[in-house]
């Protein structure tokens, strides 16, 4: 039995019917065809599916879709500026060579974005903590941490 839910997705109100058994990730990827949010493991260990819900970075693969009701959800598709420019964290990841295969990148962007939205001046430990749940096999994380630092330091 599908149920109706209403939530805000990337600043647009979404009213839709969902199967309560779905995860938020399933709704995003399979139903809404927003494939920017990735599934790397499906059990909350790799962070590739990270989205921001009411300001918090959350693994959407574990998030029951019914919990989205009334909440404000931002995905990777929703953070480019209105002008079409990249968000400063996206720009920093590009400029710092922090992207290789790129599969972890959307999740990495969202975790970093949540941190930078929350803290004006995060420490290196804050930065590492914020992406500790985002696995990356390519980069060794060095350029990713530098990229996040560059945004934090530049403001």
């Amino acid at each position: 039995m599908k149920k109706a839910i209403t939530f805000t997705l990337n600043n647009e109100v979404i009213e839709t019917e969902v199967d309560p058994k779905w995860t938020l990730l399933y709704l995003l990827r399979e139903v809404l065809e927003m494939t920017g949010t990735k599934e790397g493991c499906g059990y909350g260990e790799c962070g590739a599916c990270t989205v921001i819900i009411n300001g918090q970075a959350v693994d959407s693969c574990l998030y029951p879709v019914m919990e989205a009701e009334g909440r404000k959800i931002t995905t990777i598709e929703g953070i480019m500026l209105k002008s079409g420019e990249l968000d400063p964290i996206q720009q920093a990841l590009v400029q710092n060579g922090a992207v290789q295969c790129g599969f972890c990148t959307p999740g990495m962007v969202m975790s970093a974005k949540a941190l930078l939205d929350e803290k004006e001046r995060p420490t290196e430990d804050d930065i590492k903590d914020s992406i500790a749940g985002n696995l990356c096999r390519c980069t060794g994380y060095v350029n990713i941490v530098d990229a996040i630092k560059s945004v934090a330091g530049g403001r």
């Binding site: 494939t35 949010t37 598709e77 990249l86 996206q90 590009v94 790129g102």
Partner: peptide, 8 residues
């Protein structure tokens, strides 16, 4: 290809 990847 980084811009493609950071935007999903």
């Amino acid at each position: 290809d980084a811009p493609l990847k950071v935007t999903g």
